[in-house]
């Protein structure tokens, strides 16, 4: 169908090329700089120490940033521990448990439409609203009802961690259910009918028809959960702002990194952008070496629809 219609002396192919380049050039330029270049720049920045020179920042090569980053990383055992606990509980409850609830929603059982709305609401409302309400429930209301003068978020890092973990499970639960149930509702009903005629139980239907159907989505969420071990701030900034006292607050690396990013500058601050760039690289190396092979293995050996 490639009709060559000449207009203004240009062939269709040429016109399409010109139009294509004209339209994509700016977005591609933006993407190149903000998605690709910044990745390289953060690698380069990690090896630089800056000072203010005439009219700008002047950098010199150093390993100091990696030294600092490695110290922070290796002394952050408690932060990693908390992140792993969150990851594990989310895997079990929001992903694992969520699959059962997704099945309920996908099969359009009683009140499933209503539940889809309430499951989606926390996703839509975002962090601030629910965190603020939750915070005052755990402080003012809890203190009044229990007589305990200390709110649940103020009893130290461990108590605060349980509260924050519960919050994240409570809010994050619905999102997975929504996505899984939508994927499950794409399963061909005739396949299900045929399997029923052969006498499978509901549990077998769930395990052998629906799980394979949503497996790629499941893998995506599973991998994303692992990838978030260093980036997920658990809404800690919304709860506690920039407080990083690990005796009092359940700090994780995602929160630590975000707080330091808000405080840092190129020069002059205790933690600078080059420091954070080096820390980011350490995280990236660790995550890449885990996630890429894991994803490959899971997709290769996981259940299939056929």
């Amino acid at each position: 169908m490639d009709k060559k219609i000449k207009r203004s002396g240009l062939k269709r192919g040429a016109r399409r090329w010109i139009f294509f380049l004209a339209i994509v050039s700016l977005p591609v330029l933006q993407y190149f700089f903000f998605a690709i270049y910044t990745k390289f720049e953060s690698v380069l920045m990690a090896f630089q120490k800056y000072k203010i020179g005439k009219g700008g920042y002047v950098g010199s090569f150093t390993w100091d940033n990696f030294e600092w980053a490695w110290d922070v990383f290796t002394s952050g055992g408690d932060m990693i521990g908390r992140s792993l606990i969150v990851m594990a509980t989310k895997m079990v409850i929001t992903i694992g448990g969520g699959l059962f609830f997704s099945y309920y929603a996908a099969k359009k059982y009683f009140m499933s439409n209503f539940f889809r709305v309430t499951l989606y609401l926390p996703q839509m409302l975002g962090g601030i609203v629910l965190v603020v309400l939750y915070q005052y429930l755990l402080s003012d209301v809890y203190i009044t009802l229990s007589g305990d003068p200390t709110g649940l978020l103020d009893k130290g890092a461990d108590s605060a961690f349980i509260c924050v973990l519960f919050y994240n499970l409570w809010v994050g639960f619905g999102g997975n259910v929504m996505v899984f149930s939508t994927s499950m509702s794409g399963v061909n009903e005739s396949v299900v009918e045929a399997a029923r005629l052969e006498g499978i139980t509901p549990l077998q239907e769930f395990l052998y028809i629906y799980i394979p159907a949503i497996y790629p989505t499941f893998v995506t969420y599973f991998i994303a959960l692992i990838a978030g071990v260093f980036t997920d701030g658990l809404q800690l900034y919304t709860f506690f702002a920039g407080n990083l006292d690990r005796d009092l607050y359940p700090v994780v690396f995602g929160h630590y990194f975000f707080v330091k990013t808000t405080e840092a500058k190129m020069v002059g601050t205790v933690v600078t952008y080059p420091n954070l760039a080096a820390l980011g690289i350490i995280f990236s190396i660790i995550l890449t070496s885990i996630i890429l092979p894991l994803r490959k293995i899971m997709l290769k050996h996981g259940p299939r629809e056929d």
């Binding site: 990194f257 690289i281 995280f283």
Partner: peptide, 23 residues
Amino acid sequence: IVGTVYALMALPIVGSQPAEISL
């Protein structure tokens, strides 16, 4: 273009905010 987007989504690169701010 499409391949690059896929690749960058798959790669868990952490901590490019400082570079973005610097840019």
